[in-house]
Amino acid sequence: MNKCESPAAIDLFGIHKWYGDFHALRDVDLTVRRGERIVICGPSGSGKSTLIRCINALEQHDEGRIAVNGTTLTTDPKSVEKVRRQTGMVFQSFNLFPHLTILENCLLAPMQVKKVGRAEAEELARSYLEKVRIADQARKYPGQLSGGQQQRVAIARALCMTPNIMLFDEPTSALDAEMVREVLDIMVSLAEGGMTMLCVTHEMGFARQVADRVVFMDAGQIVEANSPTEFFGAPQHERTQKFLRQLLH
C-alpha cells in the first residue's frame, strides 16, 4: 500500500482468539474501507460478536494484527484509548447508565474523556438526540424509556464522541418487534450519512438495503463475503446456502 494513501478504517489480519480451549476466531482477515457499511451475519456462536468486540479491545485477540484508522491495537493502554475514541459501539442490551439522565448519558464521555466544555457538549448531545428523535426525553432516566427509545439513546451517546466508525452488536435483538423498525431507521440514516459501519445483525432486510458487503461467519471463520445482491442472490459456499435457507423458512 502506498504510504500517502490514507489507511483503511479497519484492518484485520490473521486474527485468532481462544476462550480457554475453544477456538473462537480462526485466522480472520477483513479490511473495511472508509465509509463502507458491512453487515456480519451467521449462526450464534460463530464468532461475529467476538470479532467486533476485538476491534475496540473489549476482548483481546490472541494472535494477528488489528489496526483502526492506522492505529495498531497493542496491550499499550494508549493505543486502546486512541482506538476507542474513534469507534462508537452499540450493544444488544443498550447498556445505558441507569443512574444518569438521557442527557447526562450523552454528556459524560465527551466531557470526561475529550474534555469538551459543558455548553458545547450539551449542544452536541442535543443535536444527536434530535437526530435519533428523542430530544424531548432528555431529562428522563433510561428506566423510564422503552427498549427502542433506549437503543436510540445508546446510538446518540456513541455518536456524541464523534467517532468515525460505528460498531453495532446485534442492536435490535433485544427489542420487541414493533421497536425494531425505529432503531433500524436511525441506522439507515446513519449509513446514508457516510458513517463507516460494522453491524452484527440478523436483520437481512437492513443488510439488503444499506450494506456494501455482507460477511457470513461460521465456526470462527469468514465463510463468504460479497455484495448483498450476490450474497443473497447467488451464495457460493454450501454453508452460506444452508444458513440462508434456514433464515427464509
Partner: peptide, 10 residues
C-alpha cells in the same frame, strides 16, 4: 456497564 464505559474510552 463496564463495557459501555470502556467503549466510551473512560
Amino acid at each position: 456497564q463496564y463495557e459501555a464505559a470502556c467503549a466510551l474510552a473512560l
